[in-house]
C-alpha cells in the first residue's frame, strides 16, 4: 500500500484513503458548443496513457475530501510529487 502525501493535509497518508480520478490537466472547455465534434471527442475520450511519469488527479476521499494533482511513475507506481488544484502543471524532468 502506497503512502501518498496530500498537499492539503500536508501528511503522508495510506493509499486506501485515496481514490484515483484520471489524468490531470484536462480542463473542461469553457464553451463546449464552440468545439467541433472531433475536438469534443478528443476532450472526452483521448488520454495519454503514459508509461513513466504521468500527471494524475487523486481525491483524498477519506481525508480532507479534496482533489489534487500528482506526478506519478506508472512503472514503479511511486509518487514523485503532489500539488494543489490550480497550481501550475508540474514539469517532468528529463
Amino acid at each position: 500500500m502506497l503512502l501518498i502525501k496530500c498537499p492539503y493535509c500536508q501528511e503522508d497518508r495510506p493509499e486506501i484513503e485515496f481514490s484515483y480520478s484520471g489524468e490531470a490537466h484536462i480542463a473542461r472547455p469553457l464553451n463546449p458548443d464552440d468545439l467541433s465534434d472531433e475536438e469534443w471527442a478528443e476532450y472526452l475520450f483521448i488520454r495519454s496513457n503514459r508509461r513513466g511519469l504521468h500527471h494524475e488527479r487523486w481525491l483524498h476521499a477519506h481525508g480532507c475530501a479534496r482533489f489534487f494533482n500528482a506526478l506519478r511513475d506508472t512503472v514503479s507506481d511511486k509518487f514523485e510529487l503532489t500539488y494543489k488544484m490550480g497550481e501550475p502543471k508540474a514539469q517532468v524532468k528529463k
Partner: peptide
C-alpha cells in the same frame, strides 16, 4: 482530528 477509514467505513 482527521477523517479517515476503518476497513470500508469512513
Amino acid at each position: 482530528c482527521t477523517r479517515t477509514i476503518f476497513e470500508s467505513a469512513e
